[in-house]
Structure formats: structure tokens, C-alpha cells
Design a protein around this nucleic acid. Structure first.
Length: 318
DNA sequence: GTCCAACCTGTATC
DNA sequence: AGATACAGGTTGG
């Protein structure tokens, strides 16, 4: 199935796919190829045209429009978050960046894996998991894999998961998979709640322990922002914390001063809460978009490593 | 309630 | 070559 979508609104395929929301897209020269909801999707942007191809015939324009949230009026979003020149600049630099509407399970699982890892590593873990547990898909003579469902992962032996490079995250992922598989969290219920309630539900503790171990404030915010359409969620990772402390010292104040005081102390739960609440009220109902633009800006600027690869490939010379 | 070290491991950097 | 630092944090003490 091949089709074209015309875009007469702000949209950048590249920025949207490279903004660290989704981990499975690959740039193969002139095309982006990803697996979305069990379908291989190949895309490229040519000015105001979006060329799409997929092996599945149920992948059509509305499928793509849904995933990229193309019906969101980004002009309105931008206008609403541009409260000062910092965001304004980031919004202009990454003009057309949109939040995606990802699959809920994949998104939650991915961000459980993302803790204390960097993006190349996260991609590697997910790639390995998909290759091992995901249903194979063929497209243009190449094999791809679905993201494995909760059922498959809940049964996976821990050593096997570790072989995928998960490390200590293996236990978390399996338990999360089990909780989802056994219905202790219900995504359709969550999606009907407000942001605060949904987040509380994700963080829920039972007498037996956490329903979703490995899901803390930041992971919950990512899941809600990237797959539940909760645009006010404002995940704060180290990059955003850096950006915010630099650009909004008044908002960040106590919280981040502490973070920088000692070498690698992270934001405490309390500071995270306080800071993200302030940022939500500062940026408004689309605060999550502001977060994404600021994240991109921070990464493109002060990258200790990992932002713009300035190195030539080390083919392990010898 | 809050603070802190420990946690796997790939990659970059020295 | 070998060591160390650091990653889109969370957990248990």
C-alpha cells in the first residue's frame, strides 16, 4: 500500500521521529522505516508531501494521521506554549516537531527500559527484545519485528531478558508485563482518567508491592504524554532539568540547585513533583510540547555525548 | 516524610 | 589497553 498525504500545516517528520519519543525508527538514507502497531511503515517527507508505504493494506492516511497526531493544530499549540523567548526559540529551531500517539504498551515498556540508559542503548535493548520475542514481519524483502506483547514478555526467563542487554531492568519489565497481562492496570480505564489520577494509577502500590515496578514519576509522565494524549505531562529527565535550570532559574530554584551541587544526584521525588507542577502551570495545557522542544534544544546544544554525533564511525581500527 | 547508595551494561573519553 | 564516567531513574533501606 502506497499513498501520499499533503501537509499544509507545520510538520517535520525528521524532528518528530528524532526527538527521542520513539525508539524504533530508522533512517535508511532517504526513508524512515518503523514498526507501528504491528505494521511496517516507510515514510519520507518531500516538502509539503508525505510519502508513505506499508506492507499492510490497513495502513492508510488516517492511520498515519493518527500516529503523528496530524489533526492537532500545531499553530495553536505553539502559540499557547510560547510564553517567553526561550521556548519561542526552541519552537522555531525545531519547527514542525510533533508529539506522537504511540501504542500504550510499547511506550510504557520502552520507558521502563529507558531508565538510567542513553538513547543508543535503549534502542539496542528494544531491538534485541523485538528480534527475540516479536512476531516477524516481512516488507520489501526485509524482516522486521513487532514489539512483543505483555504476554510474551511476562513469560520470558530473566536470563534471556538480560541477554537482550536489559540488566536490572529485566525484572522490572517482566513484572510490568505481568501486571498488564493480568489486568492489574487497564489502559482503557487510564485513558478515561485525568492526568493526575492516571499518573497515580500508574504509580499505584498494593500491599504486595508496586503494580508497575520501574515506573516512577518520570516514566509515568513519558507514558502519559506519548501514548495517552495527556499533553500537560512534563517529564523531567537530566536534559530537561539542565535546560530548565539554565533557562528558568526562578522556576527551578531550589530543586535544581541541589541537583548540580553534587555530581550525580538526581531530582528527588519531591523536587520532581514541585518543579513539574510549576512547569505545567507555567506552560499550560500543552506543557508537554514545551518540554519536547526544550529537550531537543538542550540536546542539540550542550551535548556531553550523544546529541549530534560529531565523530567519525569507529570501526575499531587496528 | 526525605536522603542515599546500588543497580546492569554499552559507549565515550581519558 | 585498561579505567572511569555517565546515561531521558527507581528502588529499598
Amino acid at each position: 500500500m502506497e499513498f501520499t498525504i499533503s501537509v499544509d500545516y507545520p510538520f517535520s517528520l525528521e524532528y518528530s521521529l528524532e526527538s527521542g519519543q520513539a525508539f524504533r525508527w530508522q533512517n535508511t538514507g532517504s526513508w524512515w522505516v518503523g514498526v507501528v502497531a504491528g505494521r511496517v511503515l516507510k515514510m519520507r517527507q518531500e516538502g509539503d508531501l508525505l510519502r508513505c508505504a506499508s506492507g499492510s493494506d490497513d495502513v492508510d492516511a488516517s492511520f498515519v494521521r493518527d500516529y503523528f497526531k496530524l489533526d492537532v493544530r500545531l499553530e495553536d499549540v505553539m502559540a499557547s506554549i510560547m510564553r517567553d523567548e526561550n521556548v519561542t526559540k526552541a519552537v522555531q529551531t525545531f519547527y514542525g516537531l510533533r508529539l506522537l500517539r504511540q501504542e500504550k504498551w510499547e511506550c510504557l515498556a520502552s520507558f521502563v527500559l529507558a531508565t538510567n540508559a542513553n538513547i543508543p542503548r535503549i534502542r539496542g535493548m528494544i531491538q534485541a527484545l523485538c528480534a527475540r520475542y516479536g512476531k516477524p514481519l516481512q516488507f520489501e524483502g526485509i524482516e522486521y519485528h513487532e514489539f512483543p506483547g505483555p504476554e510474551a514478555l511476562s513469560m520470558a526467563p530473566i536470563p534471556e531478558l538480560r541477554e537482550c542487554g536489559l540488566g536490572y531492568r529485566a525484572e522490572f519489565l517482566r513484572q510490568v508485563a505481568r501486571s498488564v497481562d493480568e489486568g492489574r492496570v487497564d489502559f482503557s480505564e487510564l485513558s478515561m482518567m485525568g492526568y493526575e489520577d492516571a499518573r497515580a494509577a500508574l504509580l499505584r502500590k498494593l500491599p504486595a508491592g508496586k503494580v508497575l515496578p520501574g515506573v516512577g514519576l518520570k516514566v509515568a509522565d513519558c507514558a502519559l504524554l506519548y501514548s495517552f494524549d495527556m499533553d500537560e505531562a512534563f517529564p523531567i529527565d537530566v536534559w530537561v532539568a539542565r535546560a530548565v535550570s539554565k533557562l528558568y532559574p526562578d522556576l527551578a530554584r531550589a530543586a535544581v540547585a541541589k541537583t548540580f551541587a553534587s555530581p550525580h544526584s538526581k531530582l528527588s521525588a519531591r523536587d520532581y513533583e514541585r518543579l513539574s507542577a510549576r512547569l505545567r502551570s507555567y506552560f499550560g495545557p500543552f506543557a508537554g510540547y514545551a518540554q519536547q522542544y526544550l529537550f531537543m534544544a538542550a540536546r542539540s546544544e550542550g551535548t556531553p555525548q550523544g546529541g549530534a554525533p560529531k565523530r567519525t564511525p569507529t570501526s575499531r581500527g587496528r
